[in-house]
Design a protein around this nucleic acid. Structure first.
Lengths: 146, 146
DNA sequence: TACGATTGTTTATCGCACGACTTAAATAGG
DNA sequence: CCTATTTAAGTCGTGCGATAAACAATCGTA
């Protein structure tokens, strides 16, 4: 009984880990066509939602450190999708802006979410509910770690 | 409305990604004391559950390729937690067996799951239910990718 | 003006992950 | 049998993500 706690099947962490990887493998071929990795894609999504964010702002949304983001953003810049410029108001900050190519990518990317929904073999409403539960768990974990 | 599909908040994939990372950060200090990484820990869990598995068997449970596992297992072997020996019956296979140190680690590791449960700020039953839903999603995604 | 806090970059390190290829062994088919 | 195919694992090359620690530049403020 107590031993069950150390069984793989009972690990919520493994469920998250393996589901995340399954998601990754599903995204990979589609993201390859956009020349994006999964985390890079998430950054692009935040930018499509709101252009001109700071590095810190993006990090706050994605829960990533600037030391992770800086190299990632440089790769996106090298790929021609974004532009990095120091803010005039506060020169400590770096503003991330979409290039026209970066903006154009949004159209192609729009085909991805329906594919995921389709692969999930469930309804959008059900997926939304599950997502909310996972987010609640994440918030609890983040709060605990802080 | 259609635009909502490309909003970060609506991404089940981001929920999984970020929750997984939150889990990782929570595990990290505890795993550091065991000298294990997260994926290494998962391998150890499968071995605690059933010793003497093949590389392929472990990979099947964790959804990892042999090209990922081989270096990982070598690190576990170098750390003194496991032993790798060719099977007598089928010399293509390599059997992974726990050393006494590897077995001993199970006791220390047993303190981790309660910490996770505590940090989750919910009940074990609720967590089990959520885990099951995530696994169902994973299965659907894996089936779709295959 | 000087000091502390904030923002982002750099450096170093490490491990995961995968694709493509290779090797060796087992199995199936002619 | 003996070849051909399949299977198991390892190798090689590549790349990215992630973190910690130290650093630089700027800002705000006392």
């Amino acid at each position: 009984m107590t031993d069950d706690l150390l069984k793989l099947d009972n690990f919520i962490c493994f469920a998250l880990y393996s589901a995340n990887h399954a998601m990754n493998r599903l995204y990979k071929p589609m993201l390859d066509e956009l020349n994006l990795t999964y985390p890079q894609y998430l950054v692009m999504v935040t930018l499509w939602e709101e252009d001109g964010q700071t590095v810190g702002g993006i990090g706050e949304k994605l829960f990533l450190e600037s030391s992770t983001l800086t190299p990632l953003l440089k790769r996106l810049e090298a790929a021609g999708f974004i532009q990095r410029t120091r803010s005039k108001e506060d020169e400590r900050q770096v503003l991330i802006r979409l290039t026209s190519e970066g903006t154009a990518l949004k159209t192609k990317a729009a085909t991805i979410p329906p594919c995921i929904l389709d692969a999930s073999n469930t309804t959008a409403a059900e997926l939304t509910r599950l997502k909310a539960e996972i987010v609640t768990l994440r918030e609890a974990l983040n709060k605990s770690a802080a």
